[in-house]
């Protein structure tokens, strides 16, 4: 277990480093200069070619890419001083640089924004499992009956609607016009757990219900397969209650494929939920990352890419550990 973790952490770090180099290089060699936005902003949209070159120099784009990447990477572990025009900013480690848009510290922004995304991801993914797996098991147990058909058909209808439409309509109908739900807002869990919960409840339900439809179908399929296994028949032949047969013997096997998809879904939720954040006006990292990409705000894009890379790596390790807990034949090594 320990050597497994060490190996996976080392391999994971390598992946994260490679992702950061790739993102850096893509922007460096990309068609539009990253300095353009800053130049336009400072000159009130009258950025001339000469001024652009000047800005590129200030941002270090006249240096070789490896030395600039080196400066950025070094900032992750030690304090960095960044000159921006005439001002010098001190960026404490771990320093992810300054946003080109408003010269704010990326690390500080991230500290404010990531908890929002993390809260959304936690709530939504919990509902994926709770609602998705329970309805999937229900459908599998009643395979071929009306209940099964209605359930499967309704998940298809529901997931065929565009997500932004579902989210926007729920937002408009359930909070603005009827106030069936409390106002959507983000309050830190550590400041006020009750407001944290009530403020995000509707968002969780919308994300959770919409995402759960896929889990209904995955877990129904996995469960139908598990229930036809010989060992489930053995369990029945022992005289076990049908509940024990279904949950202890069937569901445990059916969870293995579901966990794989769940791990990746959580990683993607952690890297930001753009539509949700935009519609419910929550300041998470999804909307932030998309806006930064439009204006080539390299430090912000770099930060959000890192979050995704780290999430994917971490979730994969967690999925592997969960596998080994579920299935004793899987050895971690």
């Amino acid at each position: 277990m320990f050597s497994f973790l060490v190996k996976r952490v080392l391999a994971g770090s390598l992946i994260v480093v490679m992702v950061s180099i790739l993102v850096y290089a893509l922007f460096w060699y990309g068609p539009k200069s990253p300095a353009l936005e800053l130049c336009r902003r400072d000159t009130n949209n009258r950025c001339t070619d000469a001024k652009l070159v000047d800005y590129e120099q200030k941002l270090g784009y006249d240096n070789p890419i490896y030395s600039e990447y080196g400066k950025w990477a070094k900032g992750l572990v030690s304090e960095r001083k960044i000159e921006f025009g005439t001002t010098e900013y001190v960026c404490a480690a771990p320093c992810l640089g300054l946003s080109y848009r408003d010269r704010s510290q990326v690390t500080e922004q991230l500290k404010d924004r990531f908890p929002v995304t993390l809260s959304l991801a936690l709530g939504a993914s919990t509902l994926y499992l709770l609602i998705g797996v329970s309805t999937g098991v229900l459908a599998a147990r009643r395979r071929g009956t009306l209940a099964d058909k209605v359930l499967v058909a309704s998940t298809l209808v529901f997931s065929s609607l565009p997500y932004y439409l579902v989210a926007l309509l729920s937002f408009l109908l359930l909070t603005l016009s009827t106030s069936a739900f409390p106002e959507v807002q983000y309050v830190s869990f550590f400041d006020n757990p009750a407001s944290w919960f009530s403020g995000l409840l509707l968002v969780w339900l919308v994300m959770g219900l919409y995402g759960a439809t896929a889990y209904t179908r995955y877990s129904r399929g996995a469960m139908v397969e598990a229930l036809s296994e010989d060992y489930v028949r053995t369990a029945k032949a022992k005289g076990l209650r049908s509940r024990t047969v279904v949950f202890k013997h069937g569901l445990r096997s059916a969870l293995v494929p579901v966990v794989t998809i769940f791990g990746l879904d959580v990683a993607f939720l952690l890297s930001g939920t753009v539509f949700t954040e935009a519609i419910f006006d929550l300041e998470g990292i999804g909307k932030w990352g998309v806006e930064a990409t439009y204006i080539k705000d390299l430090p912000v894009v770099q930060a959000t890419s890192l979050i995704l890379a780290v999430s994917v790596v971490v979730m994969n390790v967690i999925v592997d550990i969960v596998y080994s807990v579920l299935d004793p034949r899987v050895r971690l090594s």
């Binding site: 060992y231 028949r233 053995t234 096997s253 034949r329």
Partner: peptide, 9 residues
Amino acid sequence: DALAALHPF
């Protein structure tokens, strides 16, 4: 086929 008839987990 006891391999299939016993629960692997």
